[in-house]
Write a protein that binds this DNA or RNA. Structure first.
Lengths: 162, 162
DNA sequence: TTTCACTGGTTGCGCAAGCAAGCTTTCGCT
DNA sequence: AGCGAAAGCTTGCTTGCGCAACCAGTGAAA
């Protein structure tokens, strides 16, 4: 790693803002979300990922990739959600090592019940402060950044586990 | 909290991207930063805040505000940095309750030593994937968002503690 | 068919972080 | 003065999370 030029006039505030957002946003969301819905944001993310999957079913490892959590964390979160009846964990028939997590009806209901709160928090924390123009111009940039971050650690193509 | 309209066509991906960035970016940074510099990102943030303060000195509570960490966390982080000699903690003369943290010369040196790594990581994680145009257009939006998040929990105006 | 490397997931452990309760000092009111 | 409320940390405890070590099942090669 050689010498690099310092952040320039546009980059420095961009960076600052990013740092602030990454620390402040999660807290702002979590703080009222959990008490109001009984779900941690992590739980919610898992339920969303499952709800979007074919048959509402995903491999544990696919869930980890989809949510961006570590395998160990997902393992415990899924166990917990299973104990709460929001998810069912079934051993994969054609591969004895693997497990699938399936969103139960109760889980789907819970997810739908939480959605309005999620929406309200998203608006209060973010969209209420930005114009439609803001969203339109910054959106693609953030999308590119998110994609780059996703690709960086593991450049794998996950085919849906049915 | 009444009914709210769902996220629209621009908002949904914007939101997704934000969620991804807030989880993936911190890890992408931390992972190599700590081993390379011996500083956690949190430590680095504290040192930066102090280095920018007049006399390289800040109240503990001002540090908490500047870094966005809780008071309890800052308390322990500063203790730790003090034990490592990067910061000095002195009781405030004109208010027996308060303490100030001062950046030591060793702390400043350490900060400067870490800067190139910080820069390299910032470029690798973010700026290498975005154009100058991207930064210019998205920057102000992120700045506005960051400001809103800052203001939301505590709408206080902190005057510098000397 | 036996073995060995690999893959998918789980568990033990440690660390960062926050909340709530505590302690000391200060300040406002009387 | 003197007392109650509030400010400014600090400390005990809980939680979320990842890493590393582990275990079980698979599959390729001998």
């Amino acid at each position: 790693m050689g010498e690099q030029s310092a952040l320039d006039h546009d980059e420095a505030p961009f960076w600052r803002s990013l740092m602030r957002i990454t620390t402040a946003l999660p807290r702002a969301l979590e703080d009222q979300f959990l008490p109001e819905t009984g779900l941690a944001m992590t739980d919610y993310g898992v339920l969303v990922a499952l709800s979007e999957a074919p048959d509402r079913l995903l491999r544990i490892s696919a869930l980890a990739a989809a949510t961006g959590l570590s395998l160990s964390r997902i393992s415990r979160v899924v166990d917990d959600l299973a104990r709460r009846g929001l998810v069912e964990k079934r051993k994969c028939a054609d591969d004895g090592r693997a497990s699938n997590a399936v969103l139960t009806d109760a889980g789907l209901a819970r997810l739908e019940a939480a959605y309005p709160t999620h929406l309200a928090r998203a608006r209060a924390a973010v969209f209420d402060h930005l114009s439609a123009e803001d969203i339109r111009t910054a959106g693609p940039v953030l999308a590119r950044l998110a994609a780059a971050l996703d690709a960086d650690p593991l450049s794998e193509d996950c085919e849906g586990a049915r």
